[in-house]
Design a binder for these strands. Structure first.
Lengths: 206, 206
DNA sequence: GTCTATACAGCGATAGAC
DNA sequence: GTCTATCGCTGTATAGAC
């Protein structure tokens, strides 16, 4: 989920998605137009309609690609953090994905679309909910493992805790971004995760 | 901060604000037009411009009124929860304000505007940050009291904890609203507050 | 304070040439 | 695959009558 480089060599469709993605994450789906994308790429609006018939189609493609990249990033977190201490490291890795998005002065794509949810065409609405459902499933499983091995602690079900964490990270981004302060997000995330982490004495008995 | 009733007897300016407020909280500042307000009130767009010269002026008035009502609501929470156990009750009362907003199928006005922040005229941007600063000041003071009397517990400064709580509540709303599920928010809020609450044994020694 | 009428820019979208 | 040209509509905003 790192901020992708210029993507100069990608096909036109991919470059359109790159520009549109940034516009949605920075200005919202209702805050940009085909003209903005066309100007940025040096092509015309008509060319955009060749690749994406309507704004709704573009929006669906945007979420699909974002969700797919996010799933890859989660798989990378799984790979990077393995063995003992995996749950804690994976939880931290999950929060780090959000940090990277904010570092690019962006809001989470689906967090932004959640705000505009009522104005979105239904296929986009459905895709946004799927994104959160998938995140909840991955994180819930991590939290459950952490509770099982004693490294994490929380009340209620792992799904509920996952929902709480996802919402909290989205909200921390939402508020930190206007302040232009990544540290503000990181502090909030650290305090949040601290509340789920068992004390060293309990998790790593000397 | 309860969902205000029809406000049938209010002046036109107030009724415009009522309708615009709901539109912003449901669809976003970039998701509605003067025509939407005019249609809802049965007046013309030109009449709207008499009361609020431009959309930016309307937006500023919207935040000012919302922030003023929110401050009143916080004062009410102070009054309702007094004496022993006040910090915990005030913290719960703070979360309840958010619940009420969500019950009306709305997002927090300033949470919504935070998402659209980069597209807002600067006076609106400034007012949004002031709203969060004020909330942080009030909540930080509540948390500090709670730590002092032993009823609340958290790492770092009270201001940092306040920022974490505000962000988490905003994010819980942001994500719960698309699901149309107030219970989803309430569960997340309860889990969040549980992490700040000292165990009964510590706070209420039998 | 509200109206009719209108200006004018921007929007998403389409037709048809190249 | 991209262009020029244009459509129909909606956006915010204004002028001037009542």
């Amino acid at each position: 989920m790192a901020g992708r480089a210029a993507n100069r060599d990608a096909g036109t469709a991919a470059r359109i998605l790159d520009v549109a993605e940034e516009l949605v994450q920075v200005r919202g789906f209702n805050g940009f137009s085909y003209a903005d994308i066309a100007a940025e790429l040096g092509i015309t609006k008509a060319a955009l309609h060749y690749h994406f018939a309507g704004k709704a189609d573009l929006g669906e493609a945007l979420i699909a690609r974002y969700a797919s990249r996010f799933a890859e990033a989660l798989a990378d977190v799984d790979t990077a953090a393995d063995g003992a201490g995996a749950p804690r490291a994976r939880l931290a890795g999950f929060a780090d994905l959000y940090t990277e998005v904010l570092r690019n002065r962006r809001m989470c794509l689906c967090g932004m679309l959640a705000a505009e949810y009522q104005t979105l065409p239904q296929p986009m609405q459905d895709a946004v909910l799927r994104f959160f459902d998938d995140s909840e499933a991955w994180l819930g499983s991590v939290l459950e493992s952490g509770r099982a091995d004693g490294s994490l602690s929380f009340a209620g079900s792992a799904s509920e805790a996952a929902r709480m964490v996802i919402g909290s990270l989205e909200g921390a981004m939402l508020v930190a971004r206007p302040y232009g302060d990544v540290g503000r997000f990181q502090t909030a995330a650290a305090n949040l995760l601290a509340g789920l982490t068992t004390s060293p004495a309990a998790s790593a008995p000397a």
